[in-house]
């Protein structure tokens, strides 16, 4: 699917928890965050998608790092199909985790827009439920909506765009594992107004869950993530 022969500094991150929710949000509420080269994917006129992905990395996921948790806020955008056909493309708006060393690595290796360090995370593997907060207060609570996930081994290729020093970068990322994706409707939790969302008024925007992706509890998944390269 993705050819990593020429990938720069490809790292493999092993995770034992993943829960990602795409929320519908009015395009108007997020447009200002996107670089001019990227356009939001709209699922209905004026309705874009923002994603929140919570991951848990067990000890040793990368070198000597202890167990830590991560949260990524992204916007779903038009991919660059000349690189291959991904499941989706995401422009990463902000990222936090519980581990300072990990955050430094994110900045140096991946040019990721690090927001800060969490002060409190609660994470339940089965059923999937997470809550994150930092010094500015609660950020989100998120849970799986689907009552009986049917997991299957799979690979998901996605393009991760980031902005660094006014330049756009992209990485071809592959997520592997026993995964499940669904569009069950229901209550996926709550997003609290917080600087993590970079000015997106998540309360006024009333995000509605559009899709969720999760990994099978008790199994390990892998994220293959090379160093991003300049995008045009």
């Amino acid at each position: 699917m993705v050819n990593y022969d020429n990938a720069k500094d490809l790292l493999t991150w092993e995770f034992d928890f993943a829960l990602s929710t795409y929320y519908e949000i009015e395009t108007e509420a997020i447009e200002h965050l996107l670089p001019k080269q990227l356009n939001p994917i709209e699922v209905a006129p004026g309705i874009a998608l923002m994603s929140l992905t919570a991951l848990n990395f067990p000890p040793g996921a990368l070198g000597h790092l202890p167990e830590f948790q991560e949260l990524i806020f992204g916007l779903i955008v038009t991919p660059d199909l000349s690189r291959g056909v991904p499941k989706f493309a995401m422009y990463i708006v902000s990222l936090s985790s519980t581990n300072r060393e990990h955050l430094e690595h994110c900045v140096q290796h991946y040019r990721l827009p690090v927001h800060g360090q969490f002060t409190g995370v609660s994470l339940q593997h089965d059923p999937h439920v997470v809550e994150y907060e930092d010094a500015d207060g609660p950020i989100l609570s998120m849970r799986n909506i689907h009552p009986n996930p049917a997991y299957g081994e799979g690979e998901r290729y996605f393009q991760a765009f980031v902005m660094d020093n006014d330049r756009l970068y992209v990485a071809d990322v592959v997520m592997k594992g026993s995964l499940f994706e669904h569009q069950q409707t229901g209550d996926a939790g709550k997003l609290w107004p917080h600087p993590f969302y970079n000015g997106v008024d998540v309360e006024a925007a009333e995000p509605v869950a559009f899709m969720q992706m999760l990994n099978e509890p008790g199994t390990m998944g892998k994220q293959l993530y090379p160093r991003p390269e300049k995008f045009r």
């Binding site: 356009n39 199909l81 056909v85």
Partner: peptide
């Protein structure tokens, strides 16, 4: 939905 649009000038969606 995967071939609807591609970022950039080269119409990679048509090729794909």
């Amino acid at each position: 939905d995967m071939f609807i649009k591609s970022a950039g000038k080269d119409h990679a969606e048509i090729t794909q």
